[in-house]
């Protein structure tokens, strides 16, 4: 692996996305294409990101560790920290551009694109996570519970883990 390219891929993903999982489609496309990560790494990292403290977006640190050890984790942390400083520039520019309709229209289209990409990656990940009808049920149940905000994410994942142990264990 080329460390510079590795860092750039993480930096690019963070630079061109907003929110915790907006960087997912970028990292997924690039790292899978290079063979530097597997579907399993992404699923694990996303789950750890949900469970571990702090913003969910820290999942890419977990991905960094899985694919490149402590160095990968450090690269990922740096790559997700640096672009956030741009918010200070945006804050000063925003006052002047706030009312421009073109800016608002563009950013709405952007948000739609982000959601479309995230859905698409979720389906790609489902290919390796969904192995039989039981996992379809678990996936749909988690979707329903999370969508209606009935339970915190972490409780849903713990339930799913216990269920996995009961259904697939032994």
């Amino acid at each position: 692996m080329d460390p510079l390219l590795y860092f750039w891929l993480f930096l690019k993903a963070s630079l061109f996305s907003t929110g915790g999982s907006g960087n997912l489609p970028f990292l997924h496309t690039d790292l899978i294409a290079l063979g530097w990560a597997q579907e399993q790494d992404f699923l694990t990292a996303l789950a750890v990101g949900q469970i571990s403290p702090g913003p969910t977006g820290l999942w890419s640190i977990s991905l960094g560790y899985l694919t490149y050890g402590w160095g990968g984790a450090a690269f990922a942390l740096l790559a997700l920290s640096l672009p956030t400083l741009l918010v200070l520039l945006v804050a000063s520019a925003y006052n002047r551009m706030e009312k421009l309709p073109a800016v608002q229209d563009f950013s709405r289209g952007l948000s739609l694109g982000v959601v479309g990409l995230t859905i698409s990656v979720a389906f790609i990940l489902a290919n390796s996570a969904i192995i039989d009808w039981k996992s379809v049920v678990i996936c749909l149940a988690a979707l329903g519970l999370a969508y209606t905000n009935r339970l915190p994410m972490i409780v849903i994942l713990i339930f799913a883990g216990v269920l996995g142990l009961l259904v697939y264990g032994g």
């Binding site: 949900q50 990940l125 489902a126 969904i130 988690a142 999370a146 799913a160 883990g161």
Partner: peptide, 14 residues
């Protein structure tokens, strides 16, 4: 076994 439960749930959450 735990993972076989957690991974589809992670897809559901996403």
């Amino acid at each position: 076994s735990i993972l076989k439960g957690v991974l589809p749930a992670a897809v559901g959450l996403s």
